[in-house]
Amino acid sequence: MEANIKLHDMNLPMISIVVAVYNGADTLKQCIDSVLSQTFANKELIVIDGGSCDGTIELLEANSQINYWISEPDTGVYNAWNKALSHVKGEWICFLGADDYFWNNQVLERMAQELAVVSSSISVAYGSVMLLNSQGDTLYPIGDPWGAVKQRFKQVMSVPHPGLMHRRSLFERQGQFDESFRIGGDYEFLLRELKTAEAFFIPDLITVAMRQGGLSSTPFNSLESLMDARRAQKLHGQVFPGPVWLSAVIRIYIRLFLWEVVGENSARKLMDIGRKIMGRPPYWTKT
């Protein structure tokens, strides 16, 4: 791999992309191809498979450009990510979902140029993420400047984690992901750092396309995600929940109530009417 790295890329920080997968053969190829097709060469790809039986392993065996992969049972995504940490070589680490992919082939090049000049006091950098429905149709981008979401982050996950860059030294200082979390381990880890430190937002950069339908993208799992967030806050000294968190919980209970009373299809329509009133694009009827 090193022999193909351009001189320009060698002067930019190396980026490690980590993908955790379990029976993800349907989408994994697109994910891997989006990494390997990046114009930025100073990168590595690490795939941690949880012991798949759907053709994922054969896909990995056939791809010699993957720098490291392993297939064995694990206890979840955070266990898989922690396994990868002992193998990464990059100065920056990106965790990419097996159903996600880089938005275009220049994402890492643009990202590396920004990371090369970011302050050494910054250990978290991110751009925007494009949401897709399960059919692959684009919905809308999410991701706001750090100054706009800094206070909100102390109550809910307000930065998109796919495509987010973690400085490797962050894990040396803060430790690994807490594997007792099922959904909120990425939020808890980032909260360790960002409750006092700053993050860096890269404007006008869509990093990743993220399909909806994962662990935290349904109203039923959203409640668990918020409960995980509250547990993380308590771990970091926030005794009482804040108004942003409470408001989010109330909205989820309203969604679940509508689901039960009028049925899923009607509930989705009603919730998107609410989004339209608030000036937001439709989501529920699109997913």
Rank of each mutant, 00 (worst) to 15 (best):
E2W: 12
N4E: 08
H8D: 15
H8G: 10
M10S: 15
N11R: 14
S16N: 14
I17C: 11
V18H: 03
A20L: 06
N23T: 00
G24A: 04
A25H: 04
L28D: 04
L28C: 00
K29H: 07
K29A: 00
I32N: 02
D33L: 01
S34D: 02
A41L: 02
I46A: 00
I46W: 04
V47D: 06
I48L: 01
D49W: 06
C53K: 09
D54E: 09
D54T: 14
T56R: 01
I57T: 15
E58R: 07
E58F: 13
L59K: 06
I66F: 01
Y68C: 02
I70Q: 02
S71H: 06
P73E: 06
D74T: 01
G76T: 13
G76W: 12
L85I: 03
S86V: 07
H87Q: 09
K89Y: 01
E91T: 13
L96A: 01
L96S: 06
D99S: 02
D99P: 02
F102Q: 02
F102A: 04
W103P: 00
N104P: 02
V107K: 02
R110S: 07
A112F: 06
Q113E: 11
E114L: 07
S121I: 05
S123D: 07
A125K: 00
G127K: 03
S128L: 01
V129H: 00
N133T: 07
Q135V: 09
D137L: 08
D137E: 12
T138G: 09
Y140S: 13
D144L: 12
Q155R: 04
Q155T: 09
V156Q: 14
M157S: 07
H161W: 05
G163P: 11
M165P: 04
Q174C: 15
F181M: 01
F181A: 04
R182L: 15
E188P: 00
E188D: 10
L190T: 12
E193F: 12
T196A: 06
A197G: 15
E198K: 11
F200Q: 08
F200I: 13
F200G: 09
D204V: 12
I206K: 14
T207A: 13
R211M: 15
Q212H: 13
G213Q: 08
G213C: 09
L215D: 15
S216M: 06
N221R: 10
S225C: 14
S225T: 13
R231T: 12
A232W: 04
K234C: 13
K234Y: 10
K234R: 11
G237H: 10
F240W: 08
V244I: 12
A248T: 03
L256V: 11
W259Y: 09
W259C: 03
W259F: 06
E260H: 10
E260A: 14
E260T: 15
V261H: 15
V261C: 09
V262G: 09
S266T: 12
S266L: 07
R268F: 10
M271D: 08
D272Y: 10
I273N: 10
M278E: 05
G279A: 14
G279E: 08
G279Q: 11
P282Q: 10
T287V: 07
T287I: 08
T287M: 08
